[in-house]
């Protein structure tokens, strides 16, 4: 079999797996969306609070917080994974939670990873609201509160972009969830491929393990789904950026 044949066979089989709604693939996709989606929702609440506080309130340690967020935006996922892992192992400070190799641990790691990203982009879009908009609110008789509300409204598309960027980053990330989640599938093969349904196995971690096992068509199927998801998120983000 030539290498081209090998690839074509792989791709054909990959589409078969996707369109037959293979349970192994579906469960992996489901875990990916659930884990990254939950992390994104939690991170969004935190990020909006942080961005609001930093933009409109004065408190001690504000500059330190901004520095922390800026540093956090560039954290390598494996580092976050290692950090969370050390926290949640039985002897660690969060050992009592007993969440090693669970989806909760993965959500925690991704939450730490993307909260600074969402906060940072929210902050930038709030900052990008021109001073003249705020002055116009005052000129037209608005209060300080009206000015804050208007600023947030003007920044709304930037904030949506921030949330989508966070979700995209979480979906595509592999290092952190691999360490704290362990890429576990339940035993017992389903649909003829892989092992059992996914426990903590996501699109990205499954691609690494299926590829090293040599199951190329499964990897390709997972890759197609991953890239479609990430692409859709980016298209959506682009749409909101243009609406701005």
């Amino acid at each position: 079999m030539s290498s081209a044949d090998f690839l074509i066979q792989g791709i054909i089989r990959a589409f078969e797996l996707i369109f037959s709604l293979n349970p192994y693939i579906l469960s992996i996709t489901g875990v990916s969306i659930k884990v990254s989606g939950t992390a994104t929702i939690l991170a969004t609440f935190t990020a909006i609070l942080l961005a609001f506080a930093i933009s409109f309130l004065n408190f001690r340690g504000k500059q330190a917080l901004v520095t922390l967020i800026n540093t956090g935006m560039g954290l390598p996922p494996v580092f976050v994974g290692l950090f969370v892992f050390l926290m949640i192992v039985p002897v660690g400070p969060l050992g009592f939670l007993d969440i090693v190799y669970t989806r909760e641990a993965m959500i925690l790691a991704q939450y730490i990873l993307i909260t600074p990203i969402i906060t940072g982009i929210c902050l930038a879009s709030i900052k990008a609201v021109p001073q003249s908009i705020i002055e116009t609110v005052h000129t037209l008789g608005g209060t300080q509160k009206d000015a804050v509300i208007e600023t947030l409204k003007e920044a709304r598309f930037g904030m949506i972009t921030a949330i989508l960027a966070g979700f995209g980053r979480a979906l595509a990330e592999v290092g952190a969830i691999l360490i704290v989640g362990g890429n576990i599938a339940y035993t017992g093969s389903v649909g003829g491929i892989g092992e059992g349904l996914s426990k903590t196995r996501t699109l990205t971690t499954a691609i690494t393990s299926e590829t090293s096992k040599g199951d190329i068509s499964t990897s390709i199927a997972l890759g197609i789904i991953l890239i479609s998801l990430v692409l859709s998120v980016n298209i959506l983000a682009n749409y909101f950026q243009r609406t701005d």
């Binding site: 003249s132 608005g142 209060t143 409204k153």
Partner: peptide
């Protein structure tokens, strides 16, 4: 009220822009 030399415009409809001063009151 003060009309700026270069007016700042809210990213909303014309109606919402004009209504703003009334709404905050």
């Amino acid at each position: 009220s003060l009309l700026f030399q270069t007016p700042a415009i809210f990213n909303k409809s014309v109606f919402e822009n004009v209504a703003y001063g009334l709404k905050v009151r």
